[in-house]
Design a protein around this nucleic acid. Structure first.
Length: 338
DNA sequence: AGCGATGATTGAGG
DNA sequence: CCTCAATCATCGCT
């Protein structure tokens, strides 16, 4: 909260830089923009249809005024009310647009300032155009937490649960996930970090979810490898976001994750493990959904095998570390670096 | 308003 | 730099 105020535009650019980005972005409470999310799109459309394409609460002076106007104008005579409303609306619209203009101008100013800083920095260290571009895109994005949309969450969950034995996506995988979910790689990292911890903390709570995604993954996999019968995909459109597109290259994870609880032990049988895992998963899920799945018993069913007593994921060999350094230095948390 | 869920941040440890 | 763990801040539902 507070540290933002300590933004100093004249110190070492390297440090100052990010601070300033944050400062400016949070100071201006202007428009909520760039909603990758359907609900916001709807809201935007609504406002558009209303004639005031604008912000919601908070910085939305226009919106507030609109509300005031609406309630104030009500109760009057019909025709008078009408013209009154219209006048106020246009007023609001005007205000909105001037504010918007101001905002954009400030935004541009800041952007050029940032670019100047970057140019300055480029004297001491190499700065790629890509980096500059990224910065600019950061500036133009509103920073406020938003839940990921359903599809993104589904994609992430599918990956998580199908790699339950080692839920550490490589840099590459992260990038792919990020692309699919329309979020940044850092967000993917955050998500997995949170997920791992929260899952581990309360496995029982996630049982249902785990089963659900296991089933889903199994079904998808089954569809994909549906004995080569192409074009026979049943009504499941299997939209771009579904796990199928992950190649299931590693469905062995799912295999391990699920089956070791039955004591079955085709451990080494890698041949056809793909299909085997699907069958297993389905069987498991069926037995779960079909009968007595209760929290306690369930909590032993799934992943625990992957987690050791220390609370680690047994083989914490994090492959993500130095796998494909597409991204050089400066890869921090949060989209600051993206 | 209260509350749980969830995305982001921070600090420690490797 | 990554992960974990704790924590914060906001969302979204009731």
């Amino acid at each position: 909260m507070a540290p933002l105020s300590s933004c100093d535009w004249s110190v070492d650019p390297t440090v100052t830089f990010n601070l300033c980005v944050f400062a400016v972005l949070s100071i201006r409470g202007a428009q909520e923009e760039e909603p990758p999310d359907a609900q916001l799109m709807r809201l935007d459309n609504m406002l558009l249809a209303e004639g005031v394409s604008g912000p919601e609460k908070g910085g939305g002076s226009a919106a507030a005024a609109a509300a005031a106007a609406a309630s104030g104008g009500a109760g009057a005579d019909n025709s008078a009310e009408h013209s009154d409303y219209r006048a106020k609306l246009s007023q609001i619209r005007q205000i909105y647009h001037t504010e918007l203009e101001k905002y954009e101008q400030a935004c541009n100013e800041f952007t050029t300032h940032v670019m100047n800083l970057l140019r300055e920095q480029s004297r001491t260290r190499p700065i790629s155009p890509k980096e500059i571009e990224r910065m600019v895109s950061i500036i133009h994005r509103k920073r406020k937490r938003r839940n990921f949309n359903k599809q993104a969450t589904e994609i992430l969950n599918e990956y998580f649960y199908s790699h339950l034995s080692n839920p550490y996506p490589s840099e590459e995988a992260k990038e792919e996930l990020a692309k699919k979910c329309s979020i940044t790689v850092s967000q993917v990292s955050n998500w997995f970090g949170n997920k791992r911890i929260r899952y581990k903390k309360n496995i029982g709570k996630f049982q249902e979810e785990a089963n659900m995604y296991a089933a889903k993954t199994a079904v998808n996999a089954a569809n994909v490898s549906a004995h080569g019968s192409q074009a026979n995909s049943p009504s499941t459109p299997n939209s771009a976001g579904s796990a199928g597109s992950f190649n299931m290259s590693n469905s062995g994870d799912l295999f391990m994750g699920v089956q070791s609880l039955n004591g079955d032990s085709y451990q080494g049988a890698q041949v056809g493990a793909n299909v085997q895992s699907q069958v297993d998963t389905l069987r498991h899920v069926i037995s779960q959904t079909g009968g007595y799945s209760d929290g306690l018993a369930a909590s032993q069913m799934y992943s625990p095998q992957g987690i050791n007593a220390n609370g680690g994921w047994q083989d914490a060999t994090t492959p993500s570390s130095v796998t494909s350094p597409t991204e050089g230095p400066g890869s921090v948390h949060s989209d600051t670096s993206n």
